[in-house]
Amino acid sequence: MRISELKLLIIRSLDIDGDPEKGLRGLEEAGVDYRFSDGFRDKVLGRIASAGNTVVREMESVRNLNNVFSRIALTGVAAIVILLISIFMVQGSLSLDSFLGLGNSYDESLVYLLTGN
């Protein structure tokens, strides 16, 4: 097909009233067709497989992190319980003052401690 004919075909293929299939066939006959390279399917499947492995690795690291976190959380809760029991045994109550270690202090002693006078 000559270039002038091809140009005409391109313009006619864009006619609103024209048959788009006819234009497409004409261009294909002229050699206007696009393809991906050989092995395209395998490349796509390869990328999906490698992306899948990444997802599995991410899931494993999240699971490991959760395990570590639950162990830390359990140890933390146990430490808090022991602290509460020890405060109760030493101070005799679980008030805010007891938590702050001020259970047996008088106001004057506090002023002295804070100001030095």
Binding site: M1, I3, L14, L24, L27, G31, V32
Partner: peptide, 29 residues
């Protein structure tokens, strides 16, 4: 080769909002 080059150049010279319409019409039918 010439035909594909001509179509390629013409398409790339179009504004993208027209190019997409032309691609759907001309290359997909």
């Amino acid at each position: 080769k010439e035909a594909r080059e001509l179509v390629g150049k013409a398409l790339m010279s179009l504004d993208p909002k027209f190019r997409v319409i032309v691609t759907m019409r001309m290359l997909q039918g």
